[in-house]
Design a protein around this nucleic acid. Sequence first.
DNA 1: ATTAAAATTTAGACAAAACTAAAAATAGAT
DNA 2: ATCTATTTTTAGTTTTGTCTAAATTTTAAT
Lengths: 218, 218
Amino acid sequence: MTRSEENDIKTIYHLGGRGSKSISTNSIAEQMETKPSSVTDMAKKLSDKGLVHYVKYQGVSLSEFGVKTALSIIRKHRLWEVFLVEKLDFTWDEVHEVAEQLEHIKSEKLIDRLDALLDFPKYDPHGDPIPAKNGEFQERDKQLLSELSVGAQGVCVGVKDSSVPFLKFLDKNKIALGNTIKVLDKEDFDNSLRILMEGNEMRISHQIASNLFVKKNS
Amino acid sequence: MTRSEENDIKTIYHLGGRGSKSISTNSIAEQMETKPSSVTDMAKKLSDKGLVHYVKYQGVSLSEFGVKTALSIIRKHRLWEVFLVEKLDFTWDEVHEVAEQLEHIKSEKLIDRLDALLDFPKYDPHGDPIPAKNGEFQERDKQLLSELSVGAQGVCVGVKDSSVPFLKFLDKNKIALGNTIKVLDKEDFDNSLRILMEGNEMRISHQIASNLFVKKNS
DNA sequence: ATTAAAATTTAGACAAAACTAAAAATAGAT
DNA sequence: ATCTATTTTTAGTTTTGTCTAAATTTTAAT
């Protein structure tokens, strides 16, 4: 698999193109910042290789083999992200770009040993699950902070938006995975929240709250 | 810099093409397992970029900038090798292939942090020196085991041939960097040696002895 | 100094991965 | 059911890196 092919497969996976759901070449192109015609070319190639199902004008979806491949790339990406944060002290907004490169390194032994070095982590620095070698993974029981009702309390377990600006914002406001958050009040007007986090009271906008995953305390 | 360009630069460096010494396109092609005409093309490109001095029919040599670039790639390669051995328990015959890929990852922060994680190693698993960030490095004071006189003693500090078969041979015979070796006897007929290594007496061929670097005890 | 052999470059071809612009198919509104 | 706008594909071009074969230059032997 070339790097482009791997990136294609990964993008289709992230856009949800498994099973019966087909993804349009247009949306893939948009996501990859390339042109639809290039995606069409790639779709044919990947179809020939048995990685995707492709019907002209109907979009592409990953084959079983394609899903397996996507998960193996995602596994590598997320393990490298953990490595960068845990061992090299990268911040969580710095890891994506480098992991994009590292995920294409070809060595099964490398990834297995990295997994062991990191103590077989289940989640990456953004709270996303890391597929096991066989492709299995567990989506964590979670919900958006914006969906919590007043008085409810949870632990921050992930982000929906993992863009650099959002992650930097969270850092600046000392919002980190593992923090306990209690919803004190909800403002009807703009859906902003007053929360208690690790002893500090603060106000956060709806946009923030709807991009933060929490695990509700039973 | 593309991957091909980086590999080219590295090859020229390893063939000794610094300063006044020019390397023929033929020898570069042979080393890289490619064709001389491809090397000619690359030579023009690298010359345009200021990385090499290239005179038609006279071969190429690295510019100052080219040497700096080569050292930065070698630095990455060797740091990754140390990482693979020290942190991921790779054997020294397994590291080269993976490091060949890892050396092309672009992130200065990554390499600096890796350097720190490994505690700023000065030598890679084969005993080769790791250039510092500024390109400086010290070739270790060393000589070939085959050059030691009978009765002399030294510590094994590196290999000249770092091919997989040779490294595997050394492993099998429990010859490792750091071992103390004393030359007990030299066979005139085939130049083989009888040595004492870490308490064990053994016989090694001239070919082995002339690919092992030792540091002579004062 | 000449010349044959070897080394090197040039010119032109090819494959991969991307693009643009035109053509074709689909989807949605009437 | 038709037509128009949108989506998607096709066809042809570009760039990069590589190759082969022919032409050129250098080297080394006489």
